[in-house]
Amino acid sequence: MLTFEKVLKVFQAYLEDDPLYEVVQTSHGYTLMAWEPHRNDWYSAEIQKTPEDLRNALLGTYANFLEDKITGNDRDLTVTETGEIQQRCRELLEKCREP
């Protein structure tokens, strides 16, 4: 059974590397927050109702993080790079499925 704790453990290294996203536990549950460095302010805060919701949201932010890291936001990804990102996302998805 997937738990929030499991998702956070699987994505821990990514969250430590990405300065734009944080997961915080609030009185209403786990919230994924996005930081805008140019405005020096949070621009998004979304409650994640289930561990699956959190996992899926983090898979999306992780893919974007990898794309930005590879391209520097200066170009489109190549087919090979897209495949590499998809593979890395599948690896984290599989880790979430492990007992």
Rank of each mutant, 00 (worst) to 15 (best):
I85F: 10
T31H: 05
A63C: 06
K95E: 15
Q25M: 13
G29Q: 08
R97M: 15
L59R: 07
T26E: 15
N56T: 04
Y62D: 04
V79N: 11
D18W: 01
E81S: 05
K6W: 02
Y30F: 14
D53P: 00
P51K: 02
L54K: 01
F65M: 10
N64W: 10
E91Q: 15
P99I: 05
S44L: 09
E52P: 00
K49F: 13
Q12M: 02
Q86D: 07
H38R: 11
T82A: 13
Y21I: 10
L77W: 05
F4K: 04
N40M: 14
H28K: 12
L20D: 06
R55T: 00
N40F: 12
T78A: 07
N64G: 13
E46G: 04
T26Q: 12
E5F: 03
Y43A: 03
W35M: 01
V79F: 14
T31V: 10
L77V: 02
T3P: 01
V23D: 13
P99M: 10
R90F: 14
G60H: 07
N56A: 09
Q86T: 06
G72M: 11
F4R: 04
T3L: 07
L2I: 10
T61K: 11
D76T: 04
F65R: 01
E22W: 11
V10A: 09
L32I: 03
T50N: 03
L58D: 03
M33P: 00
L2W: 02
V10H: 04
A63D: 08
E84Q: 13
E84H: 08
L32R: 03
L93W: 11
I47W: 10
Q87I: 00
L54S: 02
E67Y: 03
H38V: 09
G83W: 05
L20Q: 04
Q25W: 09
L77R: 02
Y21C: 13
W35K: 02
M1Y: 04
D76K: 08
W42M: 13
K49C: 08
A34Y: 05
E67T: 08
E16L: 12
V79P: 00
H38C: 07
Q25A: 12
Y30A: 08
M1L: 09
D68M: 06
T3A: 10
G29Y: 05
W35D: 02
P37S: 08
K95Q: 15
H38S: 14
L8W: 08
E98A: 15
D74Y: 10
L20K: 04
E52I: 01
P37W: 05
S44D: 14
R55K: 12
E46H: 11
F4Y: 15
L58P: 01
I47L: 15
L92H: 11
P19D: 11
T71K: 11
F65A: 06
V24R: 04
E91Y: 13
I47N: 08
A57S: 09
V10N: 06
D17H: 06
P37F: 05
N40S: 14
I47V: 11
L93E: 15
V79A: 15
A34H: 07
Y14V: 01
D76S: 10
G29T: 04
M1Q: 05
W35V: 01
E84I: 08
T71I: 12
R90C: 11
Q48N: 09
T82R: 15
P51E: 07
P51S: 03
W35P: 01
Q86P: 00
V10S: 06
